[in-house]
């Protein structure tokens, strides 16, 4: 069984929510990414999202834009990220999903990208600018490699479209908490609860929430509403804050992830 599916099965059996941290691969270096992923896995993160940097990230706010620029300046390549995933796999079984814009996938060739991702040890793909209507080739290639295909739904997505997206989804459905780009926010969007209620009526697949979740209290509140919590920009900000003291970078990020995870784990029992 795919590692992502297996993890969600276990979480459901235990009445727990998933905690999913995001790292911008190569920020500030791939060796740092390797350490960060292993630290997050050791703390107990359920799934790890690894962002492949793209020069023009239109769905991302300033934090991930800056991380992307740092990663590209450091010479990060898709090949290098696959090698990093291989190294992580030597010591960890943590479910890993790759998040990337479509052009890096298309450039390599969809089939080849999926083969290499799988061979390296990745478990799934998130391609935020690939709408489900245009995803046929990717769906076929990903299924052949048993990769999860994680699609996004947004507060603007109508119900019948949510169903269509949920049908194409393997692993978990990614609910975007707000109409906007990625980035830490002060408060949870009022759009989130109505969206989750609509999603629940369309699918039983696990639903994880991302975009805007920036601290343990917000993570705990979202964990009460969904199967999982995704935190990206706030983690990237922690990495950024420690760029000038690299010896503390991994430790400080690990500590922040531990706090977020503790908050998510404090919510137990079946979803209301």
């Amino acid at each position: 069984m795919n590692r992502v599916d297996a993890r969600f099965e276990k979480l459901r059996a235990d009445g727990e929510r998933a905690f999913i941290p995001y790292f911008a691969a190569g920020d500030p270096s791939l060796s740092a990414t390797e350490e960060l992923v292993l630290a997050a896995a050791e703390v107990g993160a359920d799934v790890i999202e690894l962002g492949i940097p793209f020069s023009d990230p239109i769905a991302d706010g300033p934090s991930i834009q800056r991380a992307t620029e740092r990663a590209l300046r450091a010479g990060t390549t898709v090949e290098g990220i696959f090698r990093t995933v291989e190294r992580i796999r030597e010591s960890s079984d943590v479910p890993l999903v790759l998040m990337t814009y479509f052009n890096p996938v298309a450039y390599r060739g969809v089939e080849r990208f999926c083969q290499e991702a799988r061979q390296a040890g990745a478990d799934g793909l998130i391609v935020p600018d690939l709408p489900v209507e245009d995803a046929e080739e990717l769906l076929e290639a990903a299924r052949a490699q048993e990769l999860a295909t994680i699609f996004l739904v947004a507060p603007t997505t109508p119900n019948e479209r949510i169903r269509r997206i949920a049908d194409a989804t393997r692993g978990f459905l990614y609910a975007v908490s707000l109409t906007g780009v990625t980035g830490a926010r002060d408060a949870i969007s009022p759009d989130l609860q109505p969206l989750l209620e609509r999603v629940r009526r369309q699918t039983n697949k696990p639903v994880c929430v991302g975009f805007g979740i920036s601290n343990p209290e917000q993570a705990r509140r979202v964990a009460q509403l969904a199967d999982g919590v995704i935190v990206g920009s706030a983690i990237v900000n922690t990495v950024e804050a420690h760029l000038s003291e690299p010896q503390r970078l991994v430790g400080a990020t690990r500590e922040f992830i531990r706090e977020l995870l503790t908050a998510v784990r404090s919510v137990r029992g079946p979803l209301r």
């Binding site: 239109i58 769905a59 479509f102 935020p128 600018d129 690939l130 709408p131 209507e133 245009d134 699609f151 996004l152 739904v153 947004a154 507060p155 603007t156 997505t157 109508p158 479209r161 997206i165 975007v176 109409t179 906007g180």
Partner: peptide, 12 residues
């Protein structure tokens, strides 16, 4: 051509 944009924009 096509519509390679984030999901938020597809309905728009």
């Amino acid at each position: 051509g096509g519509q390679y944009v984030p999901e938020v924009l597809i309905p728009a």
